[in-house]
């Protein structure tokens, strides 16, 4: 009688690998189990000694801002309590549907109030004895879900492709030209003139690509709200040897801003600078900061030609990441006085 020996199918080095993997897995699970119980016991001890729960300890030991809100966020999302999990799920859902919007203040306040109350009941905290905790948690919830709401809002704008048959899109595009170049009207809709503000060819419609209408909205916000600065950067960008294409760079900056928002890097900035929900305009302002600082970096780097764009962009993103890793990060810039 012959029996199958599955082992013989594997080459010898793979068998070693398997044993090694099982061993690693076992060690890993023992360590994580141990650390789980260790933190649990530590938490119970701390709770008994201080009379405060973890959320309270976070709120009392930190100032309002990124450090507090990030810790609170981590704490509520790793909680195993059913009530807290339900709160997170419910608020996540609402943020995904755009309900944590600054235009929706009444409802947002009500939602946050409910969430804070529920946490106080669950954790046996008396709001009258801990009013600071209640205020702190309100701000944290507004920030955490305001950010998620913004992520969703920005992504839905990005996924609308630029459509040249849509009159609203076309009007915005023409307004961009008018704002940047008021003295030189466009000769026609499809013209080489577009390259003067840094589009690739005669028709900008193919340049927005994956950033969709968000790319145009960003450019237009910058040009209309910081006109002097935008025109000044446009002037730099048209330098014959040290120039860069203004509009295309802008679309690449939209991508950078969008990526930073999505990988949660912008949390530090928003949690430190907005003690409520965030809105589209706040994202636009981050974009303006990016444009301004990119132009500065470009001039400092003195690139020999536009092919150095990839390298400078990489350096720019690297600088931003270092900046945003700091707990007290705020992306601040000083627009020229005329622009304020």
């Amino acid at each position: 009688m012959s029996t199958n020996k599955p082992k013989s199918v594997l080459p010898s080095w793979m068998r070693f690998q398997l044993v090694e993997d099982i061993f690693n897995y076992a060690v890993h699970s023992v360590i994580s189990l141990f650390s789980y119980y260790f933190t649990l016991i530590l938490k119970i001890l701390l709770r008994k000694c201080t009379g405060l729960c973890e959320l309270q300890r976070i709120c009392y030991k930190t100032e309002k801002g990124a450090q507090r809100s990030l810790e609170v966020e981590k704490c509520i999302y790793s909680s195993r309590r059913k009530v807290i999990r339900r709160i997170c799920e419910k608020l996540d859902d609402l943020a995904k549907n755009g309900r944590f919007n600054s235009n929706n203040t009444c409802e947002v306040v009500r939602l946050v109030e409910h969430a804070v109350e529920a946490i106080c009941v669950e954790k046996d905290i008396k709001p009258s004895i801990h009013p600071e905790f209640v205020t702190a948690m309100r701000i944290c919830f507004l920030q955490i879900y305001g950010y998620k709401n913004l992520q969703h809002e920005i992504d839905s704008l990005r996924s609308i492709p630029f459509d040249s048959t849509n009159q609203e899109h076309e009007e915005k595009l023409l307004l961009l030209w008018k704002t940047l170049n008021p003295d030189y009207p466009l000769k026609s809709r499809v013209t080489k003139q577009w390259t003067e503000i840094g589009f690739q060819g005669e028709d900008p419609k193919t340049d927005f690509r994956g950033m969709g209408i968000l790319g145009l909205e960003n450019l237009l916000y910058f040009a209309t709200n910081f006109t002097k600065t935008a025109r000044c950067i446009l002037l730099h960008s048209n330098h014959p040897s040290h120039g860069f294409p203004f509009a295309i760079t802008g679309i690449n900056l939209t991508y950078i801003a969008f990526t930073l928002l999505n990988n949660n890097r912008l949390k530090t900035h928003f949690y430190n600078s907005h003690f409520g929900t965030t809105c589209l305009e706040d994202f636009h302002r981050v974009y303006c900061y990016l444009f301004y600082t990119f132009d500065k970096l470009w001039i400092e780097e003195k690139p020999k030609d536009v092919m150095e764009f990839s390298y400078i962009k990489e350096k720019f993103v690297c600088n931003l990441n270092t900046e945003l890793e700091k707990h007290d990060a705020i992306l601040r810039w000083n627009p020229p006085v005329e622009d304020i």
Partner: peptide, 25 residues
């Protein structure tokens, strides 16, 4: 420009192709 070079590149290396921007450099 707009021929689809970057999208081809990203697709070849199995990356997400929904966030392409015009290539500078």
């Amino acid at each position: 420009d707009n021929a689809g070079k970057t999208t081809i590149l990203k697709k070849m290396s199995s990356e997400d192709i929904s966030h392409i921007t015009p290539t500078q450099g």
